[in-house]
Design a protein around this nucleic acid. Structure first.
Length: 442
RNA sequence: CGGAGUGUGGCUCAGUCUGGUAGAGCACCGCGUUCGGGACGCGGGGGUCGCAGGUUCAAAUCCUGCCACUCCGACCA
């Protein structure tokens, strides 16, 4: 993308409404624009990152055997009356009436609807297990939206729902999501720690929150410090096999959010291993048995020929919130430092003298080579002054930057800079191109 | 929802106490000089001061009501 043709409204100063660093940087980098409290428009740069994060979530769900579909944002109130949640959910639910005076709601979550879809089509245990998910915008009329996309009223969530014949099967489904979540957050450069959690209004008794540690997090959390650096199992686990050991390896160590915190158990952890911090909840998984299948009559025939209520679980990831969490975890004074997996562009090209034939030609060569390697570049071909170009490129956090100036290119040299380390190296143009396309491809 | 605070060009803010022709920096437009880490000169455009009433010869400024947004607390991807 040529910057001269792009839409990238960067700000030198942070709007005063933004209090935490991720919100300030998203606004300054021209990723989002606030339209109302907790409601944001996603500008081109923000959307690129949002799409990348969403795609990683999607790939890891698919890998774990979940199947994507798409449910609507609007739901009928009657569906929620079946589960009893229409009255129970409270003022957080945005309720709407259509021209026929039909009561609708803008979905805050989809347990009811997925159960309705499931029960209409699945009648036999032979079709189980199933895990259906979608990535869709949700609306929750928060009492107090805050921190930009971290607690918006409209937000993008991946929510998956598992269906099993019995509790043992449900446990396997839960474990698959548990492991998938470890992998998915790791791919975004996040250290997310699974913690025992309160089940809240979703219900059920087995639940973990995945927490990214950050000083600006909304939850107080307590855990064994080894969990933070434990890492993810990776994609090559046996998804149909026994994942319990991988889960146990983590749940054996103490980790709990404030609501579930047990001071005595925490104190049993060696003092040097105790970590008391704040965290951002980026994922939450629940196993809740027949909470919805019972009132909504989601039944399947078992091998015994009798009807059984399906065992369900739900698994959420705050996709839009993840952008805030990633920035909180990865930034410096100059701006955002995107992990390469979610960076809006792989390479930034800065021309220090637009219109200079040698500079233009070198920039074009890099630009074409990066795209030929299947990667993306943001080419700053504007005639702004040099300093501003560097600042903007650093602000939006492009991982690799190539700087082309008339003095260097006269000798065939360009500069390559790594955003994260700040390292700069001067190299012949051809070497720089080879290095960038290799790095970008790696 | 309780408490606190803020609304003045796109962004950051001054001006409000003490009423008297709406300001600055950045950004933007034009011309020129420049050009290797947020350049300089000259010229220029852009604001019914959140909205509605009221007081006054006169309101960004005083009074009343409303709206929006932010922060702290109780709830949540």
């Amino acid at each position: 993308m040529r910057l001269s043709r792009y839409f990238l409204p960067v700000l030198k100063e942070a709007p005063s409404d933004a209090q935490i660093v991720s919100h300030q940087l998203m606004l300054r980098a021209g990723m989002i624009r606030q339209e109302a409290a907790g409601i944001y428009a996603w500008l081109p740069l923000g959307l690129r990152v949002l799409n990348k994060v969403e795609q990683i979530v999607r790939e890891e769900m698919d890998r774990a055997g979940a199947i994507e579909l798409l449910m609507p944002t609007l739901q009928l109130a009657d569906l929620w009356r079946e589960s009893g949640r229409y009255d129970a959910y409270g003022p957080e639910m945005l309720r709407i009436t259509d021209r026929h005076e039909r009561e609708l709601l803008y979905g805050p979550t989809n347990e009811e609807m997925i159960t309705e879809i499931f029960r209409g089509s699945v009648k036999s245990y032979k079709d189980l297990p199933k895990n259906l998910y979608h990535v869709q915008w949700k609306f929750r009329d928060e009492r107090r939206p805050r921190f930009g996309v971290m607690r918006g009223r409209e937000f993008l969530m991946k929510d998956a729902y598992s269906f099993d014949l019995d509790e043992a099967g449900a446990r396997k489904s839960y474990n698959r999501m548990f492991v998938a979540y470890l992998n998915l957050f790791a791919r975004m450069g996040l250290k997310a720690v699974p913690m025992r959690a309160d089940t809240g209004p979703i219900g059920g008794d087995l639940s973990h929150e995945f927490i990214v540690l950050a000083d600006t997090g909304e939850s107080a959390v307590f855990c064994h410090k080894d969990l933070v650096e434990m890492g993810a199992p990776g994609p090559d686990v046996d998804w149909d096999g026994d994942l319990q050991p991988l889960v146990d390896q983590r749940t054996a160590l103490y980790a709990a959010t404030e609501e579930m915190h047990d001071e005595a158990a925490f104190n049993a952890v060696a003092e040097g291993d105790r970590l008391s911090a704040r965290g951002i909840e980026v994922g939450h998984i629940f196993s809740f048995g027949t909470k919805y299948s019972e009132p909504m009559k989601a039944l399947v025939a078992g091998p015994d020929g009798k009807d059984h209520m399906v065992q369900m679980g739900s698994y959420g990831v705050g996709v839009s919130r993840l952008l805030g969490a990633i920035i909180e975890a990865s930034h410096d004074e100059a701006g955002i430092i995107w992990p390469e997996s979610v960076a809006p562009f792989d390479v930034g090209i800065i021309s220090l003298r637009v219109g200079d034939a040698a500079c233009d030609a070198a920039c074009e060569a890099v630009y074409k080579a990066v795209h030929a390697a299947g990667k993306t570049a943001l080419y700053d071909d504007t005639d702004a002054r040099g300093g501003g170009k560097f600042a903007s490129m650093d602000l939006i956090g492009v991982p690799w930057q190539v700087i082309v100036g008339p003095k260097g290119i006269a000798e065939g040299l360009v500069e390559v800079k790594n955003r994260k380390t700040g390292e700069r190296q001067t190299a012949p143009l051809a070497d720089a191109i080879a290095g960038l396309t290799a790095k970008a491809a790696g």
